[in-house]
Amino acid sequence: MSEARSHHRYYDLLLATFVVVLLCSNFIGAGKVAQLDLPYFGNVIFGAGILFFPIAYLFGDILTEVYGYAYDRRAVWMGFAALAFAAIMAQITIALPVAPGSYMAQYQQGMELVFGNSWRVVIASMLAFWSGSFINAYVMAKMKIWTRGRFLWMRTIGSTAVGELIDSSLFYFIAFYGIWSTHEVIAVALAQYVLKTAWEVLATPLTYWIIGFLKRKEAADYYDIHTNFTPFRVKV
Protein backbone atom coordinates (compact mmCIF):
# COMPACT_ATOMS: atom_id res chain seq x y z
CA MET A 1 0.00 0.00 0.00
CA SER A 2 1.44 3.34 -1.04
CA GLU A 3 0.55 6.36 1.07
CA ALA A 4 2.94 8.95 -0.38
CA ARG A 5 1.52 11.57 -2.70
CA SER A 6 4.19 11.73 -5.40
CA HIS A 7 4.48 12.38 -9.11
CA HIS A 8 2.98 9.65 -11.25
CA ARG A 9 4.13 8.96 -14.79
CA TYR A 10 0.77 7.96 -16.23
CA TYR A 11 -1.68 10.17 -14.35
CA ASP A 12 -1.49 13.12 -16.76
CA LEU A 13 -2.04 10.79 -19.73
CA LEU A 14 -5.06 9.21 -18.04
CA LEU A 15 -6.42 12.64 -17.15
CA ALA A 16 -6.14 13.94 -20.72
CA THR A 17 -7.72 10.80 -22.15
CA PHE A 18 -10.54 10.96 -19.62
CA VAL A 19 -11.38 14.56 -20.61
CA VAL A 20 -11.35 13.67 -24.33
CA VAL A 21 -13.71 10.74 -23.76
CA LEU A 22 -16.01 12.91 -21.68
CA LEU A 23 -16.20 15.62 -24.34
CA CYS A 24 -16.89 13.01 -27.02
CA SER A 25 -19.69 11.51 -24.94
CA ASN A 26 -21.42 14.87 -24.62
CA PHE A 27 -20.82 16.39 -28.05
CA ILE A 28 -20.81 13.39 -30.39
CA GLY A 29 -23.27 10.92 -28.94
CA ALA A 30 -25.50 12.80 -26.52
CA GLY A 31 -27.85 14.27 -29.12
CA LYS A 32 -28.76 11.03 -30.86
CA VAL A 33 -31.27 8.51 -29.59
CA ALA A 34 -30.76 5.14 -31.29
CA GLN A 35 -32.72 1.92 -31.36
CA LEU A 36 -31.58 -1.70 -31.57
CA ASP A 37 -33.53 -4.93 -31.73
CA LEU A 38 -31.81 -7.12 -29.11
CA PRO A 39 -32.47 -10.80 -28.37
CA TYR A 40 -34.74 -11.30 -25.34
CA PHE A 41 -35.12 -7.52 -24.89
CA GLY A 42 -36.80 -6.53 -28.15
CA ASN A 43 -36.48 -2.93 -29.33
CA VAL A 44 -34.23 -1.01 -26.97
CA ILE A 45 -34.03 2.78 -27.22
CA PHE A 46 -30.85 4.39 -25.93
CA GLY A 47 -28.67 7.46 -26.27
CA ALA A 48 -25.66 7.04 -28.57
CA GLY A 49 -23.49 8.60 -25.87
CA ILE A 50 -23.40 5.17 -24.29
CA LEU A 51 -20.59 4.36 -26.73
CA PHE A 52 -18.38 6.80 -24.83
CA PHE A 53 -19.70 7.61 -21.41
CA PRO A 54 -19.19 4.26 -19.65
CA ILE A 55 -15.50 4.62 -20.47
CA ALA A 56 -15.46 7.69 -18.23
CA TYR A 57 -16.62 5.53 -15.32
CA LEU A 58 -13.93 2.99 -16.15
CA PHE A 59 -11.39 5.80 -15.80
CA GLY A 60 -12.96 6.79 -12.49
CA ASP A 61 -12.56 3.26 -11.16
CA ILE A 62 -8.96 3.07 -12.33
CA LEU A 63 -7.95 6.44 -10.89
CA THR A 64 -9.60 5.75 -7.54
CA GLU A 65 -8.20 2.24 -7.24
CA VAL A 66 -4.62 3.11 -8.14
CA TYR A 67 -4.15 6.74 -7.07
CA GLY A 68 -6.99 7.34 -4.62
CA TYR A 69 -10.17 9.38 -4.40
CA ALA A 70 -8.37 12.75 -4.42
CA TYR A 71 -6.79 12.13 -7.81
CA ASP A 72 -10.11 11.07 -9.29
CA ARG A 73 -11.76 14.13 -7.71
CA ARG A 74 -9.26 16.36 -9.54
CA ALA A 75 -10.05 14.53 -12.80
CA VAL A 76 -13.79 15.03 -12.29
CA TRP A 77 -13.32 18.77 -11.78
CA MET A 78 -11.11 18.96 -14.87
CA GLY A 79 -13.79 17.15 -16.85
CA PHE A 80 -16.47 19.43 -15.44
CA ALA A 81 -14.47 22.53 -16.39
CA ALA A 82 -13.86 21.17 -19.89
CA LEU A 83 -17.58 20.48 -20.38
CA ALA A 84 -18.48 23.98 -19.17
CA PHE A 85 -15.91 25.64 -21.44
CA ALA A 86 -16.97 23.58 -24.47
CA ALA A 87 -20.66 24.34 -23.87
CA ILE A 88 -20.02 28.09 -23.57
CA MET A 89 -17.78 28.23 -26.63
CA ALA A 90 -20.29 26.20 -28.66
CA GLN A 91 -23.01 28.73 -27.90
CA ILE A 92 -20.72 31.67 -28.70
CA THR A 93 -19.69 30.11 -32.01
CA ILE A 94 -23.30 29.44 -32.98
CA ALA A 95 -24.29 33.00 -32.06
CA LEU A 96 -21.65 34.61 -34.30
CA PRO A 97 -23.10 36.18 -37.49
CA VAL A 98 -22.94 33.83 -40.45
CA ALA A 99 -21.12 34.83 -43.63
CA PRO A 100 -23.32 34.99 -46.75
CA GLY A 101 -23.73 31.98 -48.98
CA SER A 102 -25.78 28.80 -49.09
CA TYR A 103 -22.89 26.66 -47.85
CA MET A 104 -22.43 28.64 -44.65
CA ALA A 105 -26.20 28.77 -44.12
CA GLN A 106 -26.34 24.97 -44.23
CA TYR A 107 -23.23 24.75 -42.07
CA GLN A 108 -24.87 26.98 -39.47
CA GLN A 109 -27.94 24.76 -39.42
CA GLY A 110 -25.75 21.71 -38.91
CA MET A 111 -23.90 23.36 -36.04
CA GLU A 112 -27.14 24.37 -34.37
CA LEU A 113 -28.46 20.83 -34.76
CA VAL A 114 -25.34 19.13 -33.37
CA PHE A 115 -24.02 21.65 -30.84
CA GLY A 116 -27.04 23.79 -30.08
CA ASN A 117 -28.29 21.75 -27.16
CA SER A 118 -30.64 23.62 -24.91
CA TRP A 119 -29.19 24.85 -21.64
CA ARG A 120 -31.51 22.42 -19.89
CA VAL A 121 -29.72 19.49 -21.55
CA VAL A 122 -26.30 21.02 -20.86
CA ILE A 123 -27.08 21.58 -17.18
CA ALA A 124 -28.57 18.10 -16.87
CA SER A 125 -25.51 16.52 -18.45
CA MET A 126 -23.03 18.39 -16.26
CA LEU A 127 -24.95 17.88 -13.02
CA ALA A 128 -25.49 14.19 -13.74
CA PHE A 129 -21.83 13.66 -14.59
CA TRP A 130 -20.63 15.55 -11.50
CA SER A 131 -22.94 13.72 -9.10
CA GLY A 132 -22.55 10.26 -10.58
CA SER A 133 -18.77 10.47 -10.85
CA PHE A 134 -18.24 11.54 -7.26
CA ILE A 135 -20.61 8.91 -5.94
CA ASN A 136 -18.86 6.28 -8.06
CA ALA A 137 -15.45 7.28 -6.67
CA TYR A 138 -16.73 7.45 -3.08
CA VAL A 139 -18.30 3.99 -3.22
CA MET A 140 -15.20 2.56 -4.92
CA ALA A 141 -12.88 4.00 -2.28
CA LYS A 142 -15.02 2.89 0.67
CA MET A 143 -15.51 -0.62 -0.72
CA LYS A 144 -11.74 -0.97 -1.11
CA ILE A 145 -11.34 -0.32 2.62
CA TRP A 146 -14.24 -2.59 3.58
CA THR A 147 -12.94 -5.46 1.43
CA ARG A 148 -9.28 -4.82 2.34
CA GLY A 149 -8.41 -4.49 -1.31
CA ARG A 150 -10.02 -7.77 -2.37
CA PHE A 151 -12.81 -8.46 -4.89
CA LEU A 152 -11.88 -5.77 -7.38
CA TRP A 153 -14.62 -6.94 -9.74
CA MET A 154 -17.22 -6.38 -7.01
CA ARG A 155 -15.93 -2.88 -6.35
CA THR A 156 -15.79 -1.76 -9.98
CA ILE A 157 -19.23 -3.13 -10.83
CA GLY A 158 -20.83 -2.08 -7.54
CA SER A 159 -19.54 1.49 -7.64
CA THR A 160 -20.52 1.88 -11.29
CA ALA A 161 -24.01 0.51 -10.61
CA VAL A 162 -24.57 3.15 -7.93
CA GLY A 163 -22.97 6.02 -9.85
CA GLU A 164 -24.74 5.22 -13.11
CA LEU A 165 -28.09 4.98 -11.31
CA ILE A 166 -27.68 8.56 -10.08
CA ASP A 167 -26.28 9.74 -13.41
CA SER A 168 -28.98 8.27 -15.66
CA SER A 169 -31.82 9.25 -13.34
CA LEU A 170 -30.68 12.87 -12.99
CA PHE A 171 -29.87 13.43 -16.65
CA TYR A 172 -33.06 12.17 -18.25
CA PHE A 173 -35.44 13.62 -15.69
CA ILE A 174 -33.78 17.04 -15.67
CA ALA A 175 -33.30 17.18 -19.44
CA PHE A 176 -36.52 15.67 -20.77
CA TYR A 177 -39.20 15.53 -18.07
CA GLY A 178 -42.19 17.44 -19.40
CA ILE A 179 -40.82 17.22 -22.98
CA TRP A 180 -41.01 13.45 -23.36
CA SER A 181 -43.77 11.43 -21.78
CA THR A 182 -42.97 10.11 -18.31
CA HIS A 183 -42.99 6.58 -19.72
CA GLU A 184 -40.36 7.50 -22.35
CA VAL A 185 -38.15 9.21 -19.77
CA ILE A 186 -38.23 6.18 -17.48
CA ALA A 187 -37.77 3.70 -20.33
CA VAL A 188 -34.75 5.45 -21.83
CA ALA A 189 -33.17 6.13 -18.42
CA LEU A 190 -33.62 2.49 -17.43
CA ALA A 191 -32.20 1.24 -20.72
CA GLN A 192 -29.20 3.54 -20.34
CA TYR A 193 -28.61 2.35 -16.80
CA VAL A 194 -28.76 -1.33 -17.70
CA LEU A 195 -26.55 -0.96 -20.78
CA LYS A 196 -23.95 1.18 -19.01
CA THR A 197 -23.72 -1.24 -16.08
CA ALA A 198 -23.52 -4.20 -18.47
CA TRP A 199 -20.71 -2.40 -20.29
CA GLU A 200 -18.78 -2.21 -17.01
CA VAL A 201 -19.28 -5.94 -16.44
CA LEU A 202 -17.96 -6.75 -19.92
CA ALA A 203 -15.01 -4.40 -19.45
CA THR A 204 -13.93 -6.08 -16.19
CA PRO A 205 -11.00 -8.05 -17.74
CA LEU A 206 -9.70 -4.84 -19.37
CA THR A 207 -10.09 -2.95 -16.10
CA TYR A 208 -8.13 -5.65 -14.26
CA TRP A 209 -5.31 -5.49 -16.81
CA ILE A 210 -5.02 -1.67 -16.77
CA ILE A 211 -5.12 -1.47 -12.98
CA GLY A 212 -2.53 -4.23 -12.65
CA PHE A 213 -0.26 -2.51 -15.16
CA LEU A 214 -0.51 0.87 -13.44
CA LYS A 215 0.04 -0.53 -9.96
CA ARG A 216 3.24 -2.19 -11.12
CA LYS A 217 4.54 0.78 -13.09
CA GLU A 218 3.54 3.47 -10.58
CA ALA A 219 4.23 1.43 -7.43
CA ALA A 220 0.91 2.81 -6.20
CA ASP A 221 -2.09 1.20 -4.53
CA TYR A 222 -3.80 3.88 -2.47
CA TYR A 223 -6.24 3.28 0.37
CA ASP A 224 -8.44 6.27 1.29
CA ILE A 225 -8.37 5.65 5.03
CA HIS A 226 -7.82 9.26 6.10
CA THR A 227 -9.20 10.97 3.01
CA ASN A 228 -11.43 14.04 3.17
CA PHE A 229 -14.21 13.01 0.80
CA THR A 230 -15.64 16.46 0.21
CA PRO A 231 -16.11 16.96 -3.52
CA PHE A 232 -15.47 20.71 -3.24
CA ARG A 233 -11.68 20.76 -3.59
CA VAL A 234 -9.03 19.80 -6.16
CA LYS A 235 -6.04 19.39 -3.87
CA VAL A 236 -4.51 15.89 -3.71
Rank of each mutant, 00 (worst) to 15 (best):
L13T: 12
L13Y: 14
L13I: 15
L14C: 10
L14P: 01
L15Q: 10
A16C: 10
V21S: 14
V21T: 13
V21K: 10
L22F: 04
C24H: 07
S25G: 12
S25P: 02
S25I: 08
N26Y: 04
N26M: 02
N26E: 08
N26W: 00
N26A: 06
F27A: 02
F27W: 11
I28H: 08
I28L: 15
G29R: 02
G29L: 04
G29D: 07
G29P: 01
A30R: 01
A30D: 03
A30C: 00
G31K: 09
G31Y: 02
G31M: 07
K32T: 12
K32C: 03
K32I: 13
V33R: 05
V33M: 14
V33T: 14
V33Q: 12
Q35A: 13
Q35F: 12
L36A: 15
L36N: 04
L36Q: 09
L36F: 05
L38G: 06
P39A: 14
Y40A: 12
Y40M: 14
Y40T: 12
Y40D: 06
F41I: 05
F41M: 15
F41K: 13
F41R: 14
G42D: 08
G42T: 07
N43Q: 14
N43V: 11
V44W: 00
I45V: 15
I45Q: 14
F46N: 03
F46T: 05
G47A: 04
G47H: 11
G49Q: 02
I50Q: 10
L51S: 00
L51T: 06
L51E: 00
